[in-house]
Nucleic acid binder design. Structure first.
Lengths: 360, 360
DNA sequence: CAGACTCCCGGAAACGTTTACAGCAAGCAG
DNA sequence: CTGCTTGCTGTAAACGTTTCCGGGAGTCTG
């Protein structure tokens, strides 16, 4: 009747009490054996047997409440359909797994609200740390990042003085590499298909494009600039709009998804690539290599950024008192068929996709 | 001195005790106010103020231990780089989000060990439920699924009698649709680039291909069948091997990544698509529409399967006593330029990518 | 053989919440 | 004025673990 129920969890699952009772030992001993620390041979045998008989599985939540750790790391990215995040995720995953933790991914659809909600909820102790890669940053958002209850590392540009661990690249300079390359190949009417200007990367790339052209003394024809989303369909549509009103001899795209959209638009309109229009993407994802012709692309070191972010996070988890750190990964250009010099004889166009890549 | 430390968490963060002490009320009252249930106006005011002053944020783990729920759902897929899982994830996410929960994704790299480890760890109460889409299934694995501590729904083929909620498609019949379509267009030397035969989908598609050819009275030339991984590079390599030794007039690929690899191999070898070789992929992902020409593809209803799986899971969480259920989604074929009838005059080839799709 | 040292064990106190229960004051009907 | 209801409040018991601490039994040393 009034006897305390200590045997089983509310849903009927066995707890450490069940095991202890069945083995005829205290819960302390049971817990010790189950954690592999201490216990006489006989006790170990009894507890193991009891645990197996009742099918005991420890409650990770209770354990975490006690140990203050969950062994989980979260990664929040805008668009899980973008291969650049896949590469970043793979790099992060391998570091995280090596530390004996598990990685969980959450897609925010680029909405600041989602990301803040995630911070305000998930981060409240469900995970030991987070890596977030925001494409839009508001003050509110930044505040949530700064006083997050768990360690956070940001991948991407952030206000210079934000006291948050941060791994960034210089996408502005990255666009410059693409423009330099195209100018060197003799192109002058260089177009640009960008993502939204109210995003951090969108703004940086726009600035980079304008600065690069100016650096070469080329006056920018605004009809050669078009903006869409950072996605395939939007990129294709934006490229179509651009082609309908202007005649570029080269196109820089703000990421590979856009570049693929532009490639599709170009080919559908009967333009040859790179013969009529040279094409350069950004992010240097696997997608760029999947295309025919393979796309030149500016690598922003996403795998490297991911790896470093994961390492920063692990260090911060180990020592929360560390001062905020900032790391930077330099962009570089991978030249492939889509922007190969248009003057070469046809035979020089690589017949097989295994073209060794030139890295500038 | 000996006074009990009830004020702050071990890491110095405020707890409900901190708030209660500061507001001069009991922790019960503080908790009630913070949860918006009960409390006099004056109490509410004091507690809210105190919480704001100390920057209180509730510890989700402790709450979950008490409530036995975390509000988190996990999705485990083999390869997060495969767009088919992206589509599935989007569908699942929308259902899950509508129920006020959050979705976390975990990539298993197709390793049974990883997936079992996830089940044995994550599922131990860190999440309220899981959706897993295994491509390899072992007995061990199956056992872990069956007696998982949290509700699990499997997307994909599973032993007929496994007592696990399950949403499947008929990929065997799906391959049949592709073959029927190609045969109807006059093709006879139909090749097949498949994934590993030791995977569930690989085996099913192999069987489907052989059955479909037999159904049309076509004798299978084994040189027209090649196997690789379910990925782009492997698909491209496999297609190259196949083309080096045989001359198909059509190619069926076991998923879209492989199909893209095959397309690349075909174009690189100087074949026209669909002029010389017609091409049909599977999964009907966005990737198929990103190619030029756009790829015909057999839809296996991944978004629909994801949606249904999420609904099944939510129902099971609500009522764990439900009997195991099984749902099936029928495949269908989306015909696009890559397998358009080769006899049509050139003008009929769609100039723009917005071709209305024919669905059979 | 006494004392020190080891090892193992069980009781109980955490971890930070929510919530059942009981007490208490105020309001109201009779 | 009494008794019942209503609305808040605080105490304490959960949730399922891990771990500190003290006690008891055994072993070794001097």
């Amino acid at each position: 009747m009034g006897r305390k129920r200590l045997q089983e969890a509310v849903d009927g699952r066995p707890t450490v009490h069940t095991v202890a009772a069945r083995a005829g030992v205290s819960i302390a001993s049971a817990s010790r054996v189950l954690n592999g620390v201490g216990g006489s041979p006989e006790t170990i045998r009894k507890v193991r047997a009891a645990a197996a008989e009742v099918g005991y599985v420890p409650n990770a939540i209770a354990r975490s409440l006690q140990s203050q750790r969950t062994g989980l790391i979260a990664l929040a990215v805008a668009d899980i359909g973008n291969p650049v995040y896949v590469e970043m995720m793979r790099a992060i995953e391998s570091v995280v797994a090596a530390s004996g933790r598990q990685l969980l991914v959450h897609a925010t659809a680029g909405q600041v609200a989602n990301e803040t909600a995630l911070l305000r909820r998930l981060a409240h102790r469900y995970v030991d740390g987070m890596i977030v890669s925001p494409i839009r940053v508001t003050d509110d958002h930044l505040a949530a990042l700064v006083d997050s209850p768990v360690p956070v590392v940001v991948v991407g540009q952030l206000g210079a003085d934000a006291p948050v661990d941060n791994v960034r690249t210089d996408s502005r300079a990255g666009v410059g590499l693409a423009v330099d390359h195209l100018v060197a190949a003799g192109h002058r009417r260089i177009g640009f298909v960008n993502g939204p200007l109210d995003t951090v990367p969108g703004a940086a790339r726009d600035a980079g494009f304008r600065a690069a052209l100016a650096g070469h003394g080329i006056e920018l024809d605004e009809r050669l600039v078009e903006v869409g989303d950072f996605q395939y369909t939007a990129g294709r549509d934006a490229a179509e709009r651009l082609l309908a009103r202007a005649r570029p001899d080269a196109l820089v795209c703000a990421n590979d998804l856009i570049a693929v959209g532009a490639l599709h638009a170009l080919l559908a309109a009967g333009h040859r690539v790179p013969g009529d229009v040279a094409l350069v993407g950004m992010d240097d994802t696997e997608l760029a290599r999947m295309m025919f012709p393979q796309l030149s692309s500016v690598s922003l070191g996403s795998a490297e950024r991911g790896r470093r972010a994961a390492e920063l996070l692990l260090q911060r988890i180990a020592d929360p008192a560390l001062p905020p750190r900032r790391e930077q990964v330099a962009p570089h250009l991978a030249v492939r068929a889509s922007s190969a010099p248009p003057l070469l004889p046809k035979a020089a166009m690589p017949p097989a996709p295994r073209t060794p890549e030139v890295t500038a």
